[in-house]
């Protein structure tokens, strides 16, 4: 019970606060409600269709129908969609971060005319919802002949990912003391060198936070992929899941197995790197 020995004591008080205890109990209940959907999904994914339609909805599965996962994997073409997701994410995320870091460095540390206006242009982009203009994005990608290709989806992903990353990295680079770069410039180093030798290394913590965040966002993206990746062989996991849902809505067990397989990679990444999520989200949005 060591964990409880210090619990329920407000800041600056040594007494257990009864209000806090009551609150905590209510809170645990809320958390249980919050986690219910996951339990329900896992339960259903392990039931045969007959059990789903026969037994009560929230009873745990009696005999585990792992076959649902195998069947869903094959019917949902998961090998293809997972592969595409990996290719797109693994190219887009590092590339986007590198390009954004260069731009953020230029805006923050290189004296340029218009740098403030350009920064404002990027900030505007952080708030521009692409869901609003799926059709024109489609037209633009199509004009380059890139529908149903990896570059065709990666380029717009970059375009709408760059602003936020530039914004965050700009804030970070701006806070770096002048002396650090000034000394190097006096030694005759170019901005390219300073960026690569000094700024890139020191921004690694921010970059890794952004990397994790962007990984999940790219992995999960649906609307843009829906208009640009029309060929089932190019689909990503969310598109595969959507198609699975519209085709096999009544194969409840398999549908839920498909959901789990779609969700799992992002969930695992989150559980492994959850520290980075918080810092990645908050470093830009809530500056002190």
């Amino acid at each position: 019970m060591k964990m409880f020995s210090q619990a329920f004591r407000p800041v600056g008080s040594n007494k257990v606060d009864p209000v806090l205890v009551a609150l905590w109990v209510a809170f645990i209940l809320l958390a249980i409600i919050w986690i219910m959907p996951f339990l329900f999904i896992v339960f259903t994914s392990l039931k045969s269709n007959a059990t789903v339609m026969g037994a009560s909805a929230f009873s745990p599965p009696t005999e585990l129908a792992f076959g649902n996962f195998v069947a869903a994997w094959n019917r949902g073409n998961f090998s293809t969609t997972a592969f595409n997701g990996i290719v797109i994410t693994f190219i887009k995320v590092p590339l986007g971060l590198f390009v954004s870091a260069m731009a953020a460095y230029a805006l923050a540390k290189v004296p340029m005319r218009m740098s403030r206006a350009l920064f404002a242009l990027f900030v505007f982009g952080t708030m521009l919802p692409f869901q609003v203009m799926l059709a024109p994005i489609f037209r633009q990608v199509n004009a380059f002949g890139l529908i149903n290709t990896y570059p065709g989806i990666i380029l717009p992903y970059l375009a709408f990912g760059i602003p936020y990353q530039v914004f965050i990295l700009y804030g970070f680079f701006s806070a770096v003391p002048k002396e650090l770069s000034e000394a190097a410039r006096i030694d005759g180093a170019s901005h390219f060198t300073i960026f690569r030798r000094i700024f890139l290394p020191i921004s690694l913590p921010v970059l890794s936070a952004l990397l994790i965040l962007d990984f999940v966002a790219t992995w999960n993206e649906f609307a843009m992929a829906l208009v640009i990746l029309q060929d089932p062989r190019m689909w990503t996991l969310p598109l595969g899941l959507m198609n699975f849902q519209s085709q096999f809505q009544s194969d409840y067990g398999q549908l839920n197995a498909a959901i789990i397989m779609t969700v799992l990679p992002a969930a695992i990444v989150y559980l492994m790197f959850q520290r980075y999520f918080v810092s990645g989200m908050t470093s830009g949005a809530v500056k002190e």
Partner: peptide, 29 residues
């Protein structure tokens, strides 16, 4: 290269992709 030119070179890739695939569609719409 002049320092400001170096800056523009660093900025260019991000700016071009952003203008082509985010700003232009907005004008197009």
């Amino acid at each position: 290269l002049r320092p400001s030119t170096q800056g523009y070179v660093l900025l260019a890739p991000a700016l071009i992709v952003y203008l082509l695939f985010a700003v232009y569609p907005m004008i197009d719409v």
